[in-house]
Amino acid sequence: MNIFRLAGDMVHLLSFVVLVLKINATKSCRGISLKTQELYTLVFVCRYLDLFSNFISMYNTTMKIVFLGTSFAILYLMRGHKVIKVTYDREQDTFRYLFLVLPCALLALLIHNAWTPFEVVWTFSIYLEAVAILPQLVLLQRTQNIDNLTGNYVFLLGLYRGLYILNWIYRYFTEPHYIQWIVWISGIVQTILYLDFFYYYIKSWKNNVKLALPS
């Protein structure tokens, strides 16, 4: 495992920590899109179907369990926790799941590496992950006074896939036959979706002012 991959995973892990911290410390999930959280949970469930059948390393298995567990914990906090669930911006978080899930499912049926149920579901998770942030970005644009932790959470999520791109470049040059078109193109699309957010995030950080996205 190279340094970019490890850094990517750690940043991804940190994004979960920041999100749980924000929700727990403020007892509020204001500004967080439940739709995006549900889509990410679906992404992890679909991608880690081989959790118990395909052992790669202790590291991989542990991280997968942590990602799955944390995703479900966040869903519980946002939907089931008495105090927190009332802070959810239900009226603002209006993105339609089907607009994302349906095209990704169709694309996975059409473009995949092998015609097996596991491979198609896995490919679906790759496509869905690329666009799952969209409800969150739309909600951020509608939210006045984005708090720091929410801004940092989205920044870390974007940074994680960016670091994975460096990991893929590294692996391409160091491992023979390492070609992953589906993952690469999806990962690039995923990172591009954050560019606008990155621009405003860095600008607000440099000018030391509160993050606000133009609507």
Binding site: R5, D9, H12, D50, N54, I56, S57, N60, M63, K64, F67, N113, A114, E119, W122, Y164, N167, H177, Y178, I179, Q180, V183
Partner: peptide
């Protein structure tokens, strides 16, 4: 082969 690669990533 191509299928197995990438499954070692998260």
């Amino acid at each position: 082969d191509e299928e197995d690669y990438g499954k070692d990533e998260l």
